[in-house]
C-alpha cells in the first residue's frame, strides 16, 4: 500500500512539472526513478517512452502506467496514471473557473517563456545521458539520425517511424548478432 501511494505521489509531482508534451517529463522520471529510488535504469525509461509512443492514448499517461505496472503490477499502473492526471484536473478546473483571462496575465507569459528554456536545457542533458546508453553501434547511429531528420523535415507520424525502426532492429539486429556469433 505504501508503494502505491509513493507511486501516486511521485507521479503527482511529475504531472505538476510536465509542461507540454510527454517527453518533458523525462528529466524528472530519470531523477526520481533512476537516481533517487533506483527502481529503474535509464534503458527502462527509454523503452517505456518508446512503447508509449505507439500505444494509443496520451504518452505521459502511458509512460506512467508502464512504470507503475513494472513496480507494482496492475494497481501500480492505475495509481500512477491517476497521479499524473490529478494536478491537471485541479489546475485546469481552477483556471477555467476564475482565470478566464489567464493567458493575458503578463507575469504568466514571462514565467512560461523562462520555463520553456529550462525544459529545453533539462531535456537536452537527459538526451545526452540516454544517447550514451542506447546508441551503441553504427546501426543505432543511422536509426537515430534518420528518425530525427524524418521528424523535423516531414510530417510522417511518429508511429510509423517507431514501427520502422523496430522492424529494422528485428531484422538487421538479429542478423548482426548471428554474424557475431559465427565469428566466435
Amino acid at each position: 500500500m505504501k508503494t502505491l501511494f509513493e507511486l501516486y505521489w511521485i507521479f503527482f509531482k511529475v504531472g505538476l512539472f510536465t509542461f507540454g508534451g510527454g517527453y518533458t517529463m523525462l528529466p524528472i522520471l530519470q531523477k526520481e526513478f533512476v537516481e533517487k529510488k533506483k527502481w529503474l535504469d535509464t534503458e527502462n525509461i527509454i523503452d517505456y517512452y518508446t512503447l508509449s509512443q505507439c500505444t494509443p492514448g496520451i504518452i505521459a499517461v502511458n509512460v506512467s502506467t508502464y512504470i507503475g505496472f513494472k513496480k507494482k503490477s496492475y494497481l501500480g499502473g492505475i495509481f500512477s496514471a491517476l497521479g499524473v492526471i490529478t494536478p491537471s484536473i485541479i489546475i485546469i478546473s481552477i483556471i477555467a473557473t476564475i482565470l478566464t483571462n489567464f493567458l493575458h496575465i503578463e507575469a504568466v507569459g514571462h514565467a512560461f517563456a523562462g520555463i520553456r528554456v529550462a525544459v529545453a536545457a533539462l531535456v537536452i542533458v537527459t538526451i545526452l545521458d540516454m544517447y550514451k546508453k542506447s546508441v551503441i553501434d553504427w546501426l543505432c547511429i543511422i536509426l537515430y539520425i534518420a528518425s530525427f531528420i524524418l521528424s523535423v523535415l516531414t510530417s510522417i507520424s511518429p508511429v510509423f517511424i517507431v514501427l520502422g525502426s523496430a522492424i529494422t532492429g528485428l531484422v538487421l539486429g538479429t542478423r548482426m548478432q548471428e554474424r557475431k556469433e559465427r565469428k566466435k
Partner: peptide, 12 residues
C-alpha cells in the same frame, strides 16, 4: 527494442 531506442531518442 535495440532498434526502437535510438529512433525514439531521435524523435525526442
Amino acid at each position: 527494442m535495440y532498434g526502437l531506442r535510438p529512433a525514439s531518442l531521435g524523435l525526442i
